[in-house]
């Protein structure tokens, strides 16, 4: 599914990601943890092609398509989805309009037909209910005046509607109350169908209680410094990151 080899990413003339390797197979859930400023969001931006995140070395492919060669929207229609750490507002554009334009664009690019208006409405309502947002949110401007937790749930709603192949979730659990955390986790779990893969960026092992990852990686200093199973998250929760300092910096290739 996703294959990243020896990736190096420069941001504002600084190497932030430096020789990162990661291989995610279809249906797998990988969690990435790591201290603030380690480069987790940077990795997600480099993969999705954001301006200013310059890949200076290495490769990244999605189902054997070279991601780094594609425009942002092409990567999206190829099946790459990013749930943002800080979702942005688009005043005046209703959630419904936004979803419709995005879903239409992606379906057309993938050679599928557009949904009819009524089919689409049904799906949108279902997705909205699934993340436990009132249907009135479909009419509100994208993230306009949404609370932090509502924004995060709105991202999951978009994910459900867009049916991506690989979902990158950048701290989708931050700022959520206990009920909302469960709703977000349920939303993610409902999209696990054995084929769709997930890259879950989080600081808290709590989310991983709900979304059982196949692998947990620790990102520090621009590369993966340790990989393991779900138990690694528990260790980190208990001990923090300092015990990793002595670790072999190349241990990140473990998941290859």
């Amino acid at each position: 599914m996703l294959k990243i080899t020896d990736l190096q990413v420069k941001v504002a003339d600084k190497d932030i990601i430096n020789g990162l390797n990661l291989h995610i197979k279809p249906g797998e859930v990988h969690a990435i943890m790591g201290p603030n400023g380690a480069g987790k969001s940077t990795l997600s931006y480099a993969l999705t092609g954001r301006d200013g995140y310059q890949v200076t070395r290495g490769s990244a492919s999605l189902d054997d398509q070279d991601l780094l060669d594609m425009e942002i929207d092409q990567r999206a229609t190829a099946g790459l989805f990013l749930a943002f750490q800080y979702p942005v507002e688009i005043p005046g554009v209703s959630n419904m309009e936004f979803l419709k334009v995005a879903v239409d664009a992606q379906r057309l690019a993938r050679g599928a037909t557009k949904y009819s208006a009524s089919e689409f409405l049904k799906l949108a309502k279902a997705a909205c209910k699934q993340v436990n947002l009132p249907l009135s949110f479909l009419k509100r401007g994208v993230n306009e005046g949404f609370s932090g937790g509502e924004k995060k749930r709105n991202e999951i709603m978009q994910m459900i509607m867009l049916e991506p192949k690989l979902c990158i979730l950048d701290e989708s659990d931050s700022g959520l109350d206990i009920d909302a955390l469960k709703i977000v986790a349920d939303g993610i779990n409902s999209q696990r169908d054995g084929k769709r893969s997930f890259l879950v960026i989080t600081h808290y092992q709590r989310l991983l209680d709900y979304i059982k990852p196949d692998y947990v990686h620790v990102l520090a200093d621009g590369k993966i410094v340790k990989s393991g199973g779900p138990e690694l998250a528990l260790e980190l929760e208990a001990q923090g990151y300092s015990w990793l300092e002595s670790y072999d910096r190349n241990a990140g290739d473990a998941s290859e």
Binding site: I72, D73, V88, I90, G92, V93, F98, V101, A102, A105
Partner: peptide, 28 residues
């Protein structure tokens, strides 16, 4: 904003559609 443009494009809109959607929202 770049953030708005990036969000729209990450959801599959080409840059032109993205600007026009943002501007349309502004004019609603």
């Amino acid at each position: 904003s770049d953030d708005q443009m990036f969000l729209c494009q990450q959801r599959g809109l080409d840059p032109e559609k993205a600007v026009s959607m943002i501007v349309n929202g502004f004019c609603k």
